[in-house]
């Protein structure tokens, strides 16, 4: 048993898995509630986008995006190392995801 206080300190990670559009986000925390890894916490300022406390733990399943009631308010980013090449078949032009 302990009486120790608890703190929220944003962890650093080389990749930022999520982006928020503060104009679209209504701060409902549906994304916080659905995330099975629990990487976000509600913003102390009610109505603002959540804080990604543990970005390095993200599993990238996109459940947060799927649960968001305001399309575009939250986006799942790709890590740079995971971008895949695709080629337009008839022109040979290369693109990346």
């Amino acid at each position: 048993m302990t009486s120790k206080k608890a703190y929220a300190i944003v962890d650093t990670a080389p990749a930022e898995p999520l982006s928020f559009d503060a104009d679209l986000c209504i701060g409902c925390n549906a994304c916080v509630d659905v995330c099975q890894v629990d990487i976000m916490i509600p913003n102390p300022k009610v109505g603002l986008p959540p804080i990604v406390l543990y970005p390095g733990e993200c599993w990238y399943d996109g459940s947060c995006v799927d649960a968001c009631p305001e399309p575009g308010a939250i986006s799942l980013n790709s890590q740079a190392k995971d971008r895949v090449l695709f080629k337009r078949k008839h022109t040979g032009e290369d693109f990346y995801t």
């Binding site: 799942l76 790709s78 895949v84 337009r88 693109f95």
Partner: peptide, 26 residues
């Protein structure tokens, strides 16, 4: 699992078209 948002939606947003495009194998 894990394909709807990070692959289907994201690749489509990047312009990937299954009728037109080849996807590299790694």
């Amino acid at each position: 699992g894990k394909t709807k948002v990070p692959i289907l939606q994201r690749y489509s947003a990047a312009g990937f078209d299954p009728d037109e495009d080849l996807l590299q194998s790694y």
